[in-house]
Design a protein around this nucleic acid. Sequence first.
DNA 1: TATAAAATGATAGTAATGCTATTATCTTTG
DNA 2: CAAAGATAATAGCATTACTATCATTTTATA
Lengths: 228, 228
Amino acid sequence: MERLLKFVKIGINEKIYIKDPESTTLGKRIVEESILLIQEIGFEAFTFKKLGQRIGSNESSIYRYFENKHKLLLYLTSWYWGWLEYKLVFATNSITEPREKLRTALTIVTQAAEVDSNFSHIDEVLLSKIVINEYSKSYLTKEVDADNKEGYFVIYKRLVNRLSTMIAAVDAAYKYPSSLASTVLEGSLHQHFLKDHFASLTDCHEKGDPTDYFIELVFNALNTTPNG
Amino acid sequence: MERLLKFVKIGINEKIYIKDPESTTLGKRIVEESILLIQEIGFEAFTFKKLGQRIGSNESSIYRYFENKHKLLLYLTSWYWGWLEYKLVFATNSITEPREKLRTALTIVTQAAEVDSNFSHIDEVLLSKIVINEYSKSYLTKEVDADNKEGYFVIYKRLVNRLSTMIAAVDAAYKYPSSLASTVLEGSLHQHFLKDHFASLTDCHEKGDPTDYFIELVFNALNTTPNG
DNA sequence: TATAAAATGATAGTAATGCTATTATCTTTG
DNA sequence: CAAAGATAATAGCATTACTATCATTTTATA
C-alpha cells in the first residue's frame, strides 16, 4: 500500500486550485502545514497570513495556489476522500462475495485512520481529524449548489455511490441504498466526533467501535448477517 | 398544541444570552428577524450590523442581547431542540407500548417541520431549515468542550438521551442505543440536506421519506417491527 | 553562461467584520 | 414630572480577506 501510493496521485478537480500544489515544494508545504495549522487552531481561526508565517513564506504566495481558505479546505477534504476511495477500491476489488465485500468496505470507511500512512507529505491521521471537524463546513454554505455544479464534491459523491452499489449488491430489494451509504459516511464522522466531545451521546468508546456499530446497523437493515 | 405552547416557554440556558430576548419587543424582533436573515444569506454572511439595518435598530443594541452571532446561533438551535423535545414528550407521554412510543418519537424527530406552527414569533419551518444548514457549525468549533461545559448543548443532549432511552425500552440488549439515537438525529438533518442539494446521495425524495427510512433502520437494528 | 521567464517575497492598501466605548435620546413607570 | 432603564448614533480599533505592485530569487533554455 505505502509503496503503491508513492506512484499514485489523487486526482483532484483542477478548478479547486489556481496552481497545482503538488507541482512545487512550496505547494506541498502549503498543503502539509495547513493540515497541521488547521488541526491546531481550527478552520475558523486559520488564515493564509498565519500559514505564511508558519512556513516562512508569504501570504500572497499562498494566494497564488488557492483562491481562499475555503478552496483549500475543499482541496484537503477531496484529497482525503480520494485517498479513502483508493483504499476502498484496493481492498475490495478482488472480493466477489457481496457481503464480504460490503463488510470490508464498511471497515475501511468507518475506522479512524490510525496506522502507517506515512507515504507522502500528507499526514492522513491528522487529515482525518480535520475531516471529522471541518468537512461539513465545506458544503454547509450558501454556495453549495454552485460548488457542486463545479464538481468540487465529485470524489465524495463517487465514494457514496460505490458504497451504495455494494449495499445494493447484497440486497437489491433494499429501498434506501444511497441514504444508508450517506448515513454511514456522515454518521461515522459524527460518531468519531462524539467520542471525543460528547461521550454520553455515543456507545462507541473503544477502538473499532464505530465500525462494529455500523456493520451491525447495515447488515440488520439488509436483513442478513455480515458473514456469508 | 398551538394553544398550549402559548403558555410554555422553552427554557434556554441563561448564559447563552446577555439579556433575555423574550423579555422585550426588540429582543423578540432580533430572534424573529435573525431567523429570516440567516436563512436568506447564510450564517457566514450574517452580521449584527445587517440585522440591525433590517430591523431598523442598531448593531450595538443587538450586542446587548447576544455576545456574538455564535451565541445567537446557540440560542436559536437550543430553542429548536427544546421545541422538538416538547413535541416529543407531549406526543409520547401517554403511550406505554415501547414500540409504538419509539415509532411516534422517530416520526416527530425525523420529519421536517412543515405544518401549522404559528404559535409564537418564531417561524419553526424556517428555523428547522437553519438547523439543517447551520447546526453543525455550533459545535464544530475549537470551543466545543468549553461550550459544552457551560451547558450550551444540554437540550440537544437530553433529546438524544430521551430517544436512547426509548430505544433501550424496546430492546434492552441492544448495544448502541445512544449511537443509534444520535445517528438518527444527525442523520435526519443530513438526509434533509441531501434531499435539497445532493439528490443522488439519498433515496428520501418524497415527503415522509426520511421518516420511513429511519423507522425501518431503527427497528431492523433492534430486530423487531414498528408495530406491536 | 547569459538571459529571459517564472516563481516567490515584501510591502502597501482597501473594504468589511467583529467588536467596544461613549454619549445622546427616547420610554417607562413610580 | 423625574429618575431609571433601554435604545440609537457615532466613532474607533484590531483583524480578516483579499488585491496590486514591484523587487528579488530561482529555474529553464538558447
